[in-house]
């Protein structure tokens, strides 16, 4: 493959956006590069003339509690996520999903922003974030920063809705409530593509008696062209008078019904994925509910 001709490492968002604006579609953002460079090397991505490395921007890898939100800089690495005590307490579904990507060498450089921007429907970190009902902050040239729901930025497999002069700046989600818990699990196969056969993240909140699911968020990938919220399964859970086997099986049936599963060559059959929705949903709901029951008095988090 041919390679880029310029490599910029801006230290402010404004500088990065200005470079992107200046070079338009000749430039691309690089963070960890572990997806982008592979795609370029495999000639699946057009090699840009200019790479704009956003990882040296001040604060781009922060984890902080700000205005009642847990905020993650888009350049936070998977290793930083895994090892953050705050996230381990607050967002197990995120630390679990980010902890299984690649090996340490990849997780040390690969960023959550890169995982989301790559827009794969099965991206582990994205699935974890989705269950947290995360919002994403998009920074645009001219200082137009805005928060929007994570799901709104996906256009299709491998495609996001960001303009060439926009960048992901941060993610945020609400701290964990009392009697709430979350979890992630996935199925890989040992051959072929290094992408999950299926991954599921779930977050639940129980009622005061710790019996009924009051609130549920379930994210599944790949179950369609973009990361997928299993709203039918969520409703099935909250509609049940009690969190029991029947409630779980109703949620499984609803998720199987709603998910758009397909056979991907050398990765998984549609039928197998359908089975795995059941296996994984049972596993993650069990784990999330157990954690919610342990979380009767949630740890207090303070602004940092």
């Amino acid at each position: 493959m041919s390679r880029w001709r310029a490599y910029h490492t801006p230290t402010t968002v404004a500088e990065a956006l200005s470079l992107l604006h200046q070079h338009k579609d000749k430039a691309r953002i690089i963070a960890g590069g572990t997806d982008l460079i592979l795609d370029m090397e495999a000639e699946h991505a057009v090699v840009p003339e200019v790479l704009v490395d956003v990882t040296k921007i001040a604060g781009i890898d922060r984890v902080a509690l700000e205005d009642g939100w847990i905020v993650l800089g888009a350049g936070i690495t998977h290793t930083q996520i895994e090892s953050s005590p705050l996230l381990r307490a607050q967002a197990r579904c995120l630390t679990e999903s980010c902890g299984v990507i690649g090996g340490p060498q990849v997780r040390n450089v690969a960023t959550l922003g890169g995982n989301v921007a790559h827009a794969l429907p099965a991206a582990d970190g994205t699935i974890g974030l989705l269950a947290l009902e995360a919002e994403v902050e998009i920074a645009g040239h001219g200082g137009s920063n805005r928060w929007q729901p994570l799901l709104s930025i996906f256009a299709g497999p491998g495609r996001n809705r960001l303009a060439p002069d926009q960048m992901l700046h941060a993610f945020r989600f609400r701290p964990i409530a009392a009697r709430a818990g979350n979890a992630f699990d996935r199925i890989m196969r040992p051959q072929g593509v290094a992408l999950p056969v299926l991954g599921i993240a779930a977050r639940v909140r129980l009622d005061a008696d710790l019996r009924r699911v009051e609130d549920a968020v379930i994210a599944i990938g790949p179950a369609g062209p973009t990361p997928f919220r299993a709203s039918g399964a969520e409703e099935a859970l909250t509609a049940a008078a009690e969190f029991d086997d029947a409630a779980v099986e109703n949620a499984v049936a609803a998720a199987q019904e709603q998910a758009r599963l397909r056979t991907s060559k050398y990765r998984a059959s549609q039928e197998y994925r359908r089975e795995m929705i059941g296996v994984l949903l049972r596993r993650v709901l069990q784990a999330a509910v157990e954690r919610a029951r342990m979380n009767d008095a949630p740890t207090q988090v303070e602004d940092t």
Partner: peptide
């Protein structure tokens, strides 16, 4: 492998191990 798959190229940059085969050198500025 040139694809951060095999780990033969592992080196330590500022205390963190990386696969140097696809690690842009200017990241290590």
């Amino acid at each position: 492998c040139d694809e951060a798959e095999c780990g033969c190229c592992t080196v330590i940059v500022d205390g963190q191990s990386v696969d140097s085969c696809i690690y842009p050198a200017f990241k290590a500025q």
